[in-house]
Design a protein around this nucleic acid. Structure first.
Ligand SMILES: [Mn+2]
Ligand SMILES: [Mn+2]
Ligand SMILES: [Zn+2]
Ligand SMILES: [Zn+2]
Lengths: 152, 152
DNA sequence: TGCGTAAATGAGAATCATTCTTATTTTCAT
DNA sequence: ATGAAAATAAGAATGATTCTCATTTACGCA
């Protein structure tokens, strides 16, 4: 995955009817270049570090626009702030395991679950538009730490 | 399902180490007597109507206690406020379909999905504690209204 | 390349659900 | 019935997000 150039990002924005402002380019670049799941404040602090002229309002407004255009996914882990991750094309749907101890996110896709979700909708005459599924617990790393011998 | 008496509710609270205050009894009664999914403000307004002495802070504090004791489930439909529903014993886990048009909630349980969730966790060495799954879309009733002939 | 206008931004006020604080009231074991 | 511990009321505080509006910027067009 070659990192997107500024020109790539500019085009990406314009292809979605969004004006290519320096703020939006920087935001999209940050999201595109990692697999992290950021909250708005993290994005604000990171961009503010590099580029003095970014405000929180712009972060929120730009994220909203990017989510509308499906360039970015908005996630709700249930802790009071939204997370944002780059959306990599049309087929990147995935769900998340969330470690309640270290915060690590593991992505997964289970086609049987996806199929059963559609089946449930059909049984209920329900026309689905989106779904969210988060499994909370303790990740493999944190479990290993827990079982570490106390002395040794 | 015979409606729980005040004595039943009192015992229910005390069995969970919670003092049986009039506010908690009223709150638990309200939740126990319907299958609705309430937000905190709805509960506040409803209780306040009947019993002058209830404050929002108490609603929130009591809900937290009831959720801790697993007498009540806390749900996050992603619209900025939490919902609360009565938890009916240990085997009542279910997930939700949420109509984006009329707000109707349909509950469901799909054991294949539940099984696959555990499988995913196992594959990742992940120890699950809880999960949330919400499917958003348009319910059967709203779909029918939509397809209603415009004149007729 | 320079202009004009519509759109985007910055700064901070406003909002809204939820949590916190503190003085007062209530519960419940004794 | 009594008193210590816990719960409550009222409203202030918090924190994420949205809104306001004066100022700046992007970009289609001359
Ligand atoms: Mn993800
Ligand atoms: Mn339910
Ligand atoms: Zn972990
Ligand atoms: Zn509906």
């Amino acid at each position: 995955m070659p990192k997107a150039t500024n020109q790539d990002l500019k085009k990406m924005l314009r292809d979605h009817e969004l004006k290519a402002t320096s703020q939006r380019i920087a935001l999209l670049k940050l999201l595109n270049n990692t697999y992290k799941h950021f909250d708005a404040e993290e994005l604000y602090l990171e961009l503010h570090k590099r580029q003095k002229n970014v405000s929180r309002a712009t972060i929120y407004r730009s994220l909203e626009a990017l989510v509308d255009q499906e360039l970015v996914n908005k996630l709700d882990f249930g802790d009071g702030r939204m997370r944002y991750e780059c959306s990599r094309g049309g087929d990147d749907h995935h769900d998340h395991l969330i470690c309640e101890q270290c915060g690590k996110i593991v992505e997964f896709l289970n086609i049987e679950i996806e199929a059963q979700q559609l089946a449930v909708c059909e049984e209920n005459g329900f026309l689905p538009t989106t779904h969210t599924m988060y499994i909370f617990g303790i990740c493999a790393d944190c479990r290993n730490l827990e079982s570490e011998p106390e002395i040794g």
